[in-house]
Structures are given as C-alpha cells and as structure tokens.
Design a protein around this nucleic acid. Sequence first.
DNA 1: CAAACATATGATTAATTGTTCATATATTAT
DNA 2: ATAATATATGAACAATTAATCATATGTTTG
Lengths: 107, 107
Amino acid sequence: MAEAGTDKTVAKQPDDEILYDLAELFKVFGDSTRIKILYSMFEHELCVNDIARLLNLSQSSVSHQLRILKTSKLVKFRRDGKSIYYSLDDEHVRSIISMGMEHLEEP
Amino acid sequence: MAEAGTDKTVAKQPDDEILYDLAELFKVFGDSTRIKILYSMFEHELCVNDIARLLNLSQSSVSHQLRILKTSKLVKFRRDGKSIYYSLDDEHVRSIISMGMEHLEEP
DNA sequence: CAAACATATGATTAATTGTTCATATATTAT
DNA sequence: ATAATATATGAACAATTAATCATATGTTTG
C-alpha cells in the first residue's frame, strides 16, 4: 500500500518534518549572539555570568539564549553551588561550526 | 597599549565580524523553504520551475530564496535556453546539511 | 517584431524573534 | 530566617524577514 507522497516521478525528499527540524536547528546557529556564546565555550565550560561579562551581554539575554541552546541540545550544563556551568554538548556542535567556518574561508 | 577586549584571562574569540558572518551563513540554512530547496538539489541540478513544482512553492518565492542562496555561495547556476539550472555550489553545503542531520538523529 | 515562456525583483504585509525590564526561583552564607 | 548572589522566565516592544502580488528582464519561437 502506497504511503502518501510516494511519488515515483521524482527523487523523494526526506519528510517535511525532518527538513523542518533541520531548519530549526540551523536557525539556532543563525544568530550572532548564540554563535558567540557557543564559541565562548569552545575551549572550556563557562557559567552564565562569565559568558555575559566576556561577551558584554546582559545576564538575562544570555539566559534566554542558553535556554534555546539547551532545548536544541547544543549545550549541556552542570550546577556547582550557585553557578551553573555550560559547555558544548557534543562534537557535532564543533563540527557544524567548523564546517561553516571553512565555507566562509573559501575563495 | 592594550586593545579593548584583549583580556588575557580568557581565550580570545575570533573577530566579531567573522562570527557575525558565520551566523549569517547559518541563518541561510535556518529556513525550511531554503532547506527544502537545497535538499531538492542534492541529487542533481534543477531549474526554478522544477523546484517550484516539486516543492509546491510559487515561482517568485523560489526565485527570492535562490537569490539568497546565490549570495551566500551555497548554489551555483547555469543558463540553458530559457531555463536556469541551479545546483549545490560545493561539498561543504552537503557536509553542513549532513552534520545537521546527524545531530538530529542523536539520542 | 510580437507572443510566449522562464526567471528576477521591488513593495507591502504578516509573522517571527531577540532584547530589555521586572520579577521569580534557587543556592549559600551570616 | 534573612540577605546576598546566580540564574531563569514572562511580557512588551522593536526589528527582521518570508510570502505575495505586480511587474520587469531575458530568451526563444513563429
């Protein structure tokens, strides 16, 4: 029994939903504040205030953006006393950013 | 004489401008219409009308988005008679999309 | 050259989104 | 328990942006 959208005349695209999620993921990388935040954690974990001071952003703004990064599983975190330390969630995050960099460096 | 922001206590970030450009690049991937368009060209080149029909989008919309993809050097194109055939510009585009997919597939 | 077809583009509009401000929650120290 | 510090979150506002509509540009055919 044919599934909806199984059209033999053209190469099948991944489900719209997957492409939608993919766009949502890139959207997260597509804001300079969030990219700066991600980049600030390239070497080591940082707490919210560290990031805010380092990047000259308000604590609130950083918190809001970290929530988005958390939701997309781009960062993980651990509590240590009053502070919460954030770090990149996995190597994919670095890879994606590095690929982007490489593209920019092209002729 | 120390420049503003040259703080030795933390690893230096790349120039703001580079990170800004990086965010702009990901912003281009961060729209589901554009991702669908890019994905439609994964296998082979397509002309504007092909894309519009395939993805059920207006010709105008596709053209507008292709202009953005062109500007970011994500697609290239060639004219053949009345039609203009678009294709992915290089392997980085595929790589970036694939990396994103991999991230989505994670546990 | 005119008609037809393919693509590009400018202007407008609706929807999305990042920042700010105010305030809430959570942890530690006194 | 209260104050102090660190982080999170809700609401409102300003700015960005994708789709549409109308029209322009470019190419081929009769």
